[in-house]
Design a protein around this nucleic acid. Structure first.
Length: 207
DNA sequence: CTACCGATGCGCT
DNA sequence: GCGCATCGGTAGC
């Protein structure tokens, strides 16, 4: 059953979906729905990035800490981290058996609850639909996410989950945005030609 | 559209 | 202290 978002036929993704390694999960999440049932929000993911255990850019690369613990599994839990002194970003953990892996949700096409998203994002200024979810920190802000959501189980019937409505779109792979270490691993996945995808910006210090 | 820059606070060397 | 999986404003093409 689909909650308040009015999206018939969208089936929540089960834990097994997330337990297949970050790159495969990242690719397959493009086109899926991110649903916040409590707030009536829904959006179609158009851009993701994979981070793995042997990856210097992964927050779990240097071992487990209180902050990055959700990355180490179980799969299907949220890892929400704070960065640049002001932004939150949402990941889904894909790490089974103590491996630190995750997928960063970078951008989405808004489908339902645009008024709520805009109210959280705008802060008084005019904001186009395109600017609501185009970027990982924008997406997290529009969904009202912060550190209290880190560790939240996305597969337990809670308010925040990912779902499959059967839509299938062409996905292209390329280098990740904004990372310095291992900048050329082709682990950014995006809906081909989508106008909802974030602006590509290579980090100034990326090799 | 691209390029630059400052904001801002936490985790880690 | 340093560096950051970013963003918004401004300047310029």
């Amino acid at each position: 059953m689909t909650p308040a978002t009015g999206l018939p036929g969208a089936a929540p993704l089960e834990r097994s979906f997330f337990a297949r390694g970050a790159p495969a999960v990242a690719r397959d999440l493009v086109g899926m729905l991110l649903v916040h049932a409590h707030d009536g929000l829904a959006a179609r993911l158009v851009e993701t990035e994979a981070y793995t255990e042997d990856d210097p850019a992964c927050h779990g690369y240097r071992g487990r800490t209180e902050r990055n613990a959700p990355l180490f599994g179980p799969p299907g839990h949220a890892y929400v981290y704070f960065t640049y002194g002001m932004h939150w970003c949402l990941n889904t953990a894909t790490g089974a058996a103590g491996r630190a892996e995750g997928v960063l949700l970078r951008a989405a096409e808004p489908i339902a609850g645009l008024d709520v998203m805009r109210a959280r994002r705008a802060g008084g200024r005019r904001l186009s639909d395109r600017d609501l979810l185009r970027g990982p920190a924008r997406l997290a802000q529009a969904y009202g996410l912060d550190g209290t959501w880190s560790g939240h189980d996305l597969c337990d019937g809670g308010p925040l989950y990912l779902a499959d409505d059967g839509a299938r779109i062409e996905v292209e792979a390329g280098p990740r945005v904004g990372v310095v270490a291992a900048a050329d691993r082709p682990w950014r996945f995006a809906a081909a030609g989508s106008r909802w995808v974030s602006a590509y910006k290579r980090h100034p210090r990326a090799g």
